[in-house]
Simulated scan of single mutants.
Amino acid sequence: MESQISTPQMQFAQRLSPTRRGARLARRLAAHQLEAWGIPHGSDLSDAAAHITAELAANAVTHGHVPGRDFELRLLYAESARTLRIEVSDARGDRVPRLCPPDTEAESGRGLRLVEAAAVAWGVTERRIGKTVWAELRAPGGGPWL
């Protein structure tokens, strides 16, 4: 899918340890930053962003971990497009996420389906080292975020 975001007006970036704790912290930081930008905690946009951040961070920790390398969370908001972009980058470019047919017996493997359902677009971008998995959410009409 192609990205819809233009030049962002607001940005946030944080490197985190590639641990379960780092993944949990990514979700909390995303919710906190969105609150600071005026997106109320508990709103549909905040909740969707938190879930997507949690899934992408968990995947980075589980499948993208390289010893000695952190993962990065980036949030970007483009007011003109009313689009919030969530990016999670890790050092494993050889493990590109793909949607797989659902396995009703499996205990995992549904996370990207949740990302696909919640986001207006998502994809993977190669980097010099590793990859960035991104998802975009559209802010509802009616106010800055509401």
Results as ranks from 00 to 15, higher is better:
130 G>H: 04
117 A>I: 06
92 R>H: 03
90 D>A: 08
104 T>H: 13
120 V>K: 13
80 S>H: 14
134 W>S: 13
85 R>N: 01
112 L>W: 05
127 R>W: 07
85 R>S: 08
98 R>L: 09
112 L>S: 02
119 A>H: 03
82 R>Q: 01
83 T>M: 12
103 D>F: 07
131 K>F: 13
104 T>E: 09
138 R>I: 01
136 E>K: 00
112 L>D: 00
102 P>C: 09
98 R>K: 14
86 I>M: 11
131 K>Q: 11
83 T>K: 12
126 E>P: 03
111 G>H: 11
84 L>S: 10
133 V>W: 03
109 G>M: 04
83 T>F: 06
124 V>W: 04
125 T>P: 00
88 V>S: 07
89 S>G: 00
111 G>L: 02
133 V>M: 06
105 E>C: 12
100 C>P: 09
90 D>G: 07
122 W>R: 05
100 C>S: 12
111 G>A: 02
110 R>Q: 15
112 L>F: 13
112 L>C: 08
136 E>I: 00
86 I>H: 13
85 R>Q: 11
120 V>E: 12
133 V>H: 05
95 R>S: 13
138 R>H: 15
97 P>R: 06
114 L>V: 03
124 V>I: 08
108 S>E: 10
87 E>A: 13
123 G>T: 01
98 R>Q: 14
85 R>P: 04
91 A>C: 05
124 V>Y: 02
129 I>D: 07
80 S>P: 11
90 D>M: 13
103 D>H: 12
102 P>G: 09
128 R>L: 12
103 D>I: 15
81 A>T: 14
115 V>G: 02
135 A>F: 00
114 L>P: 09
130 G>M: 08
103 D>C: 03
131 K>G: 01
129 I>L: 06
118 A>E: 07
81 A>S: 15
114 L>R: 09
121 A>E: 13
92 R>N: 07
108 S>H: 07
88 V>H: 06
136 E>S: 06
116 E>G: 06
138 R>L: 12
100 C>V: 11
110 R>P: 11
105 E>Y: 15
82 R>S: 10
106 A>F: 04
110 R>A: 07
138 R>K: 05
85 R>I: 10
126 E>V: 14
99 L>F: 03
